[in-house]
Design a protein around this nucleic acid. Structure first.
Lengths: 120, 120
DNA sequence: CTTTAGGTACGATGCAAGTCGTACCTATGA
DNA sequence: TCATAGGTACGACTTGCATCGTACCTAAAG
């Protein structure tokens, strides 16, 4: 049963919704950013550099929230998002590690490309 | 670069496609079945009990194949599917364990429901 | 109080995905 | 050889998703 803001309880999270949410590269990047920043400091929705309109951003964050990936708290002006790390590790063990692994892999690949370009 | 039958090499597999493929419950069930059967014995496409038309089944198996989740071999009449277990464990460590974990969880929940119904 | 910044709600649109029926292909077996 | 079973190819339909513009809301700043 989700709460008033639409956050599902861990036992109500569905793997299908999690996968569907993470299938989109923009949303995956948001989760990865939160994951890598490691900070418990939540970030404002607008600070992720998503190259889309405001309305679209709201849509993506809703998908992430309703899947159970992020927790959003209303701070009057602005809304802060944080990763539901502990609950996700408990409910879907290995999921966040998988994302982290892939993030590192892509970073390495990008770095390799830059190096190759510099050597041209 | 995929081969002639559309199987991508491990380094060409994309997490986005994997997640998109596994977002569908029918496809997730196919992978889970292969995962649990543990057998190296590949199964024919028609033996998974998918409640859809033949053409739809072909579609789902193509998505799984092009994402890199399954390997299909043409056996003249009939086509056998097997899980690309080793490659997936290498490329996306933790993914199959995550699926297995969720499969066990759902099986337990279903069992609990049946028990509760029997006690009514 | 007015402005401004961050987000949401709503409606519209274009595109991709899941579904199916039908026709066709290929081996196996009678 | 002919029928049958398992799959694919193609086209069509429907639904859902990502996207956006616009209007609106709320709090902080001036």
């Amino acid at each position: 049963m989700p709460d008033a803001e639409g956050h599902p309880a861990p036992e109500d999270m569905e793997l299908g919704k999690i996968f569907a949410a993470l299938a989109d590269p923009l949303r995956r990047k948001v989760v990865l950013t939160l994951l890598q920043e490691d900070g418990e400091t939540p970030r404002a929705c607008g600070t992720f550099g998503m190259p889309v309109a405001k309305a679209t951003r709201t849509h993506h964050f809703r998908v992430l929230r309703e899947a159970g990936l992020i927790f959003q708290v209303d701070r009057g002006n602005g809304r802060l998002s944080s990763l539901r790390r502990a609950e996700l590790d408990q409910r879907f063990p290995g999921l966040l590690d998988l994302l982290m692994h892939e993030g590192a892999r892509e970073a390495a690949k990008t770095e390799a490309n830059k190096t190759a370009a510099a050597e041209t």
